[in-house]
């Protein structure tokens, strides 16, 4: 940070950030299964769940399954949290976002608990969600997420979750046991 570098061309920065986000999202099979994708404006993410028949819970109404809504909110929360960690690593130059290997070594936070508040039934339309990190500590994080369909101010569901952060290793952050078992470790 001591030397002032020439600013990078905007396209290079965009490509790097988009590639990093893509690797984070495309690597998770369940996100692909549900068909969720993310819109990015700077570091702000919006999760998009395009409507699909297989998301229906009650075919009589029809309404989106409560489980699909819960999964969508949890995906939005985990990706927001992972993205904020990745963004920091990337922007401070600790992680080379152009290296697929470095991105693969990046570990995801684990859900400790997740509480979903169903406000109205999910209609057979696209759904959107945005998450807000209320606290992000070294070991734990608390994230709130809101989901809506046609009107941003008429939420159909919201949730709060607590997450166990991936263990940060100074030599690359690869030291994850990959489970919530880490909670019990001293």
């Amino acid at each position: 940070m001591s030397e002032r570098r020439k600013p990078e061309p905007v396209q290079v920065v965009k490509q790097r950030r988009d590639a990093a986000l893509r690797s984070l999202v495309d690597g998770v099979p369940y996100i692909q299964f549900l068909g969720i994708h993310f819109d990015r404006r700077g570091d702000e993410l919006t999760a998009v769940l395009p409507f699909d028949e297989k998301l229906i819970g009650n075919p009589m109404l029809p309404a989106i399954h409560g489980g699909a809504t819960a999964a969508f909110l949890e995906v939005a929360a985990i990706i927001e949290l992972s993205w904020s960690l990745l963004w920091e690593e990337m922007e401070q130059g600790r992680l080379d976002a152009t290296s697929p290997e470095a991105l693969r070594a990046f570990r995801l936070p684990k859900t400790i608990d997740f509480t979903v508040d169903y406000l109205r039934s999910g209609l057979p339309r696209d759904a959107y969600a945005r998450a807000r990190i209320n606290r992000s500590g070294r070991r734990y994080a608390s994230v709130h997420v809101e989901a809506w369909q046609d009107n941003r101010s008429r939420l159909f569901a919201q949730a709060t979750g607590h997450f166990l952060m991936p263990s940060r290793d100074d030599n690359g952050g690869q030291n994850g046991d990959g489970g919530q078992n880490g909670l019990l470790a001293p």
Binding site: G27, V28, P29, Y30, I31, Q32, F33, L34, H65, G66, G67, A68, A70, A71, F72, E74, V75, I78, R104, R107, L108, T111, F114, V116, G176, G178, G179
Partner: peptide, 27 residues
Amino acid sequence: DPRFVGDPATGVIHGGAVSALMDTASG
């Protein structure tokens, strides 16, 4: 089902799929 994996590094099922299972059983 490998399509429901949440963490590609470990092959562990996504919490969301577990939530959907529990919501269905509860209903």
